[in-house]
Amino acid sequence: MDSLIIPPTNDSPEVKFDTTTYRFSIIGESRPENAGKFYDPIINWLTEFENILYWRKHEMKDNSSTVVFVFKLDYFNSTSAKHIMDILLMIKRFIGQGYKVNVEWQYDKYTEDMLDAGTEFSNMIGLNFKFVEIDVD
């Protein structure tokens, strides 16, 4: 399956779901004019990815292959929040099926709001995140 690569714009984050490394990242600012139009293809891609996981389940259920979702968001608007939650719910479903999937939530050490937002998502969905503090300019 091809990787999903969406370059960043002024109002949407960079999306890089690399199927060679299984490192899936969403990085930047999210306030697209039409959040559905931006996030639907990502959800569709993940739905297809779920099928791939199924066919490779022996490989994907041992410890050597882990999918890592990295969220490194400077900001997301409240409309994007619901779509980000959809992605997280999908991750939870993957984990529920026995696949090794980790969520890494990176936040700028001065942006407590993004740490709070990650904590909120984690609690709301019942999914453990690895929180990583980063030092950006």
């Binding site: 306030r31 900001y75 608007n77 409240s78 409309t79 001065y110 942006t111 407590e112 709001d113």
Partner: peptide, 18 residues
């Protein structure tokens, strides 16, 4: 600002405009 207040202001600003 070293406290990240600029980012907080920016975030609230975006939501206010929306």
């Amino acid at each position: 600002s070293i406290t990240g207040i600029d980012k907080k202001v920016y975030n609230i600003l975006v939501e206010s405009i929306e």
